[in-house]
Design a protein around this nucleic acid. Structure first.
Lengths: 328, 328
DNA sequence: CTGAAAGCGCTTACAG
DNA sequence: CTGAAAGCGCTTACAG
């Protein structure tokens, strides 16, 4: 592979000049620019990004840490991030933390070592709690989860309010014994808060709450347990699409009917949710907007490390469908 | 951030020795090793991967090109690739080609410029056809799609046979007018071949075949068209999970019943497919095995660029469910 | 077993 | 407007 030296030799200028032409620096004599470009063309020269990155201490890679790209919420966000990054000439490093802070930390360091331009992350609980101690000296944007005590660019939805509305909707539909399945961290805490608020306002003294992990199988287990106890809940509120999927599995297996035996609602609007019978009522998160905004914020942070951090709260949307409507 | 010079100064040895200790090179006096490690610890030194990569012409990054990470087949493969790579000390660069060879080529070059250790790719049609002309001089593993006229490590399933079995199953179930929806490239061609073979053997002279793109909406459109013409097909064979999802949408919208009005089968075993009524009959692809094998092959190729290429063909599995069983 | 020195392929003050 | 030279932070023959 030709290096910048070969291009310099071919076009009869110094490597400095070749570098300047290629970086679109000003003050180049037009004839020189043409000669350099011709040499580049002729040799099929492509600048070595590793050398460029080492020397300039910059790069065109951004790191993206999700808890699990197989969760459709994160899949969608990742896709949008990748698209937007691509449009800005950046590429992305994808890592799954699995909610494991060890893994997350290892990835954060690895990204740092590889000199990424910035990191977009949905952090684990520990990292959320101790964000200020992380101190990676790198442009960072947090999404999906709230960071405490540290001014940083972040993108979230109003989870308390969204959960509140979703639970209110169940109440308004006439369900009397509503159970919620949440995870004990991140968005789970806020969603639980909104859920409990709505139920208390409706006069349900002690709402049933189960804490679990964000997987299909734990949603399944939790739901099975809930629906085989007495009194049996007549509606289930699932904290996210994975738990919701597990819940639906369990309900079907138990031979119960949605929405009459059990109402079912949750978070995340995944395409299969309108294919099942009945279709599922959910809070739709604006995954596109989240991804787009994350790239936007990280780019602006890379450009100006000193600008004041932005806390963006995006609108979510209650999608009412058959799974939560009791026939009169 | 401390550099190797600082560690050398702190431990009273040369940078060469520090480098040797950190790369676990042999012939280090134990006392020296300890002093260096202590200095590393004390300073919190982390080797700069960019510098290391530039100098050694190696790296611990592998590139992964999928057509679209939002397609659950690719999501699953990507996740496994990331996991396996992580276990080997590698991280992954994820890119979506969208089946666009321009984008794909740009990414391939970018990966080359960033000095990745190797690339795992499900190539576009054009790249499949002209693989030998690509000539990136980089370890490569191809998956999902067949490469012609070029010995290269690859991982596929026997799509012709899988489709043959799936179509045979429809025939055996008693469907008489079976239509197939395929894409005009990649796996679509082979799946169509197996489909047509089974139908011809069953005496269906001219099987109905529609060519489309691999998206939910094009599956939807194709199915709507098929099911509103006369004679109406009594079964639909969808080339992948996205087309299958669109098909199901269309069938529901038209008010037709599966499996009685229309049988429905396809490729890819996605978790929602057992949640819908009736659950869908599909060919399950071993996404885990594919991802694991891809990383395995790329590692072995990185280790030994000269080893003879392997063409791995993995077993798929016919999962018979309610969507293709006509009641007697 | 260890160090001095060259060099990976660029960019960037500095000088002219 | 351009070039000579230094240097980003490592690794690696080479010599001892």
């Amino acid at each position: 592979m030709p290096s910048i030296k070969d291009v310099a030799a071919e076009s009869g200028v110094s490597t400095a000049t070749v570098s300047r032409v290629l970086s679109n620096k000003p003050y180049i004599t037009p004839g020189v620019r043409d000669r350099v470009m011709a040499a580049v063309q002729k040799l099929g020269y492509r600048p070595n990004q590793v050398a460029r990155s080492l020397r300039s201490q910059q790069s065109t890679t951004i790191g993206l840490i999700v808890s699990d790209v197989c969760n459709p919420f994160f899949t969608d966000v990742s896709r949008t991030v990748e698209d937007c990054a691509y449009n800005q000439g950046y590429s992305v490093f994808l890592c799954n933390s699995d909610g494991d802070e060890k893994k997350e930390l290892k990835y954060l360091h690895e990204m740092y070592d590889k000199n990424v331009a910035g990191i977009i992350i949905s952090p684990t609980k520990k990292t959320c709690d101790n964000f200020s101690r992380l101190d990676l000296k790198l442009p960072m944007v947090v999404y999906d989860r709230p960071i405490k005590g540290c001014p940083i660019d972040s993108i979230t939805i109003d989870n308390v309010d969204a959960a509140y509305q979703l639970a209110q909707h169940l109440v308004a539909s006439g369900y009397k014994h509503i159970a919620g399945i949440f995870i004990g961290e991140a968005t789970g805490i806020e969603r639980r808060e909104g859920f409990e608020k709505a139920l208390k306002e409706a006069g349900f003294v002690q709402p049933t709450v189960v804490i679990t992990r964000s997987t299909i199988s734990s949603g399944y287990d939790a739901t099975r347990k809930l629906l085989t106890q007495t009194p049996r809940p007549d509606a289930i509120f699932a904290t996210d699409n994975l738990v919701l999927e597990g819940s639906m599995q369990a309900i079907i297996e138990l031979g119960l009917k949605i929405p009459t035996d059990v109402g079912l609602v949750g978070f995340d609007n995944v395409s299969w949710m309108t294919l099942v019978q009945p279709p599922l009522t959910v809070i739709r998160q604006p995954t596109d907007e989240i991804g787009r905004m994350a790239v936007d914020l990280i780019m602006r942070r890379i450009e100006d490390p000193e600008r004041p951090p932005l806390q963006v709260i995006l609108k979510s949307q209650l999608m009412i469908r058959g799974s939560s409507i009791l026939p009169k």
